[in-house]
């Protein structure tokens, strides 16, 4: 899928909630989506690492996206609301999992719907840009803004860049 936005093509993105905010990721980085499962804690790891899971006998590190993005963690919501999942992405040839609090959809968006960040600051250091969603009759009355995650920034936290 051609993702060159200057060529007016459309791109698929995965949309989900972390805390109460809508985030998105380009589908080409998404390897798999799985339901939340037992996360084994990794003592001695940085706070942003929730732990690890065993996926088909391979170890996958799980990143605490709530913590990184400073969103209200799902554990503060009611039990019933816990529809958490893990989005497994490819990163530097390995697989890493990101906790998401609720799944939304896979959307096909047009290059015109991308909105750049005004300027990089503390609040949006892990975002690439935004996507403005079209008016969805029934669901969202107004335009929604989806914050597109910058995996390279997000997953190299704590390392000397």
């Amino acid at each position: 899928m051609d993702t060159n936005t200057s060529e007016n093509k459309s791109v698929e993105i995965l949309v989900f909630y972390i805390g109460k905010t809508l985030y998105g990721l380009r589908m080409e980085r998404v390897e798999e989506i799985i339901g939340i499962q037992k996360i084994i804690p990794l003592p001695g790891s940085m706070d942003e690492i929730l732990g690890i899971i065993n996926l088909r006998n391979r170890i996958i590190p799980i990143v605490d996206s709530n913590f990184l993005l400073k969103e209200a963690s799902a554990s503060s919501l009611e039990e019933e609301e816990k529809n958490q999942g893990i989005v497994i992405v490819s990163f530097a040839g390995e697989r890493v999992g990101i906790i998401v609090d609720d799944m939304c959809d896979v959307l096909s968006v047009h290059s015109e719907q991308f909105v750049s960040l005004s300027k990089k600051n503390e609040k949006n250091r892990y975002l690439k840009n935004f996507v403005r969603t079209k008016n969805d009759s029934g669901e969202d009355a107004a335009n929604q803004l989806i914050s597109m995650l910058d995996l390279e920034e997000m997953l190299t936290f704590g390392e000397n860049v």
């Binding site: 339901g35 939340i36 999942g85 959809d105």
Partner: peptide, 13 residues
């Protein structure tokens, strides 16, 4: 499907 998450997404679709 045993994954809550995936089930929910499929259900919604």
């Amino acid at each position: 499907d045993d994954a809550i998450f995936a089930r929910k997404l499929t259900r919604k679709t």
